[in-house]
Computed example of a mutant assay.
Amino acid sequence: MRILLMIIGTICTILGFIGVVLPLLPTTPFLLLAALCFARSSDRFHQWLIQTKPYQSYVEDFRQHRGYTLKKKIQLLISVYIVVGFSIYMIDHLYIRIALSMMLLVQTIVLVFFVRTLPEKS
């Protein structure tokens, strides 16, 4: 079972790191799952993962406080809007543009209304 958890954790870590540069692929859920798998299978990998910059940047506040600061929410939305907006601009298929626009709307609604806004740290 330990080996299976390490394999799943490794795959989720790779997908989470890819999600840092591809906003269509979520980062936080994959890194949370990887942390869970590594916590149950390998202390060394778990310690490595929680020290990485993507984990600290995207997951730590969410894991500890179940939310993001307003500044972080705006940063996330801007990066998603830039990449998805560019995709919408480049793709010449109407239905794909509509699907990407709907996905962007859902991501915005979830981040604004369902993810808690944390106060800024002093």
Results as ranks from 00 to 15, higher is better:
residue 97 R to V: 12
residue 77 L to Q: 13
residue 73 K to M: 07
residue 91 I to Q: 06
residue 82 I to A: 04
residue 92 D to P: 06
residue 78 I to A: 10
residue 74 I to G: 07
residue 96 I to Q: 12
residue 71 K to H: 03
residue 98 I to K: 06
residue 100 L to S: 01
residue 95 Y to E: 15
residue 71 K to D: 06
residue 106 V to A: 12
residue 84 V to P: 00
residue 81 Y to T: 00
residue 80 V to P: 00
residue 89 Y to I: 04
residue 81 Y to E: 03
residue 78 I to Q: 09
residue 87 S to F: 12
residue 71 K to L: 04
residue 79 S to T: 11
residue 105 L to G: 13
residue 74 I to C: 08
residue 77 L to E: 08
residue 71 K to R: 07
residue 96 I to Y: 10
residue 95 Y to I: 07
residue 80 V to H: 06
residue 102 M to L: 15
residue 94 L to Y: 12
residue 107 Q to H: 07
residue 104 L to A: 05
residue 79 S to K: 13
residue 87 S to T: 02
residue 89 Y to Q: 10
residue 85 G to N: 04
residue 69 T to Y: 01
residue 106 V to W: 09
residue 96 I to P: 03
residue 93 H to R: 10
residue 83 V to E: 08
residue 92 D to R: 07
residue 89 Y to D: 11
residue 94 L to A: 10
residue 81 Y to L: 04
residue 104 L to H: 03
residue 72 K to Y: 00
residue 82 I to L: 15
residue 69 T to N: 01
residue 95 Y to T: 06
residue 104 L to Q: 01
residue 88 I to D: 06
residue 105 L to Q: 04
residue 76 L to H: 03
residue 103 M to Y: 14
residue 106 V to I: 14
residue 83 V to D: 02
residue 84 V to E: 05
residue 85 G to W: 02
residue 82 I to S: 01
residue 103 M to W: 14
residue 104 L to M: 13
residue 98 I to M: 13
residue 103 M to A: 13
residue 105 L to Y: 04
residue 94 L to E: 11
residue 74 I to K: 13
residue 100 L to Q: 02
residue 83 V to A: 09
residue 92 D to Y: 02
residue 85 G to V: 02
residue 78 I to C: 08
residue 83 V to W: 04
residue 89 Y to C: 09
residue 96 I to G: 03
residue 81 Y to C: 03
residue 82 I to T: 04
residue 85 G to S: 04
residue 90 M to N: 15
residue 79 S to R: 14
residue 103 M to D: 07
residue 105 L to D: 08
residue 86 F to C: 11
residue 78 I to T: 12
residue 73 K to V: 04
residue 95 Y to Q: 14
residue 85 G to L: 02
residue 90 M to S: 14
residue 91 I to P: 03
residue 91 I to D: 10
residue 82 I to W: 10
residue 70 L to E: 14
residue 75 Q to N: 12
residue 76 L to S: 03
residue 76 L to A: 05
residue 100 L to T: 00
residue 94 L to K: 10
residue 88 I to K: 01
residue 79 S to Y: 15
residue 84 V to C: 05
residue 107 Q to V: 09
residue 82 I to P: 05
residue 70 L to D: 09
residue 100 L to R: 00
residue 73 K to L: 07
residue 78 I to M: 07
residue 75 Q to K: 05
residue 78 I to S: 08
residue 87 S to G: 01
residue 87 S to M: 09
residue 74 I to R: 14
residue 78 I to G: 10
residue 81 Y to G: 00
residue 90 M to H: 11
residue 107 Q to S: 13
residue 82 I to Y: 07
residue 75 Q to Y: 07
residue 79 S to M: 13
residue 83 V to H: 04
residue 101 S to A: 15
residue 73 K to G: 00
residue 95 Y to G: 06
residue 107 Q to I: 09
residue 75 Q to G: 04
residue 86 F to Q: 05
residue 103 M to R: 01
residue 96 I to F: 11
residue 103 M to K: 02
residue 90 M to T: 13
residue 100 L to C: 02
residue 75 Q to L: 12
residue 104 L to V: 04
residue 92 D to N: 11
residue 79 S to F: 15
residue 92 D to V: 05
residue 78 I to E: 07
residue 80 V to I: 13
residue 81 Y to F: 14
residue 69 T to F: 01
residue 70 L to Q: 13
residue 82 I to H: 03
residue 79 S to Q: 12
residue 83 V to T: 06
residue 94 L to R: 12
residue 100 L to G: 00
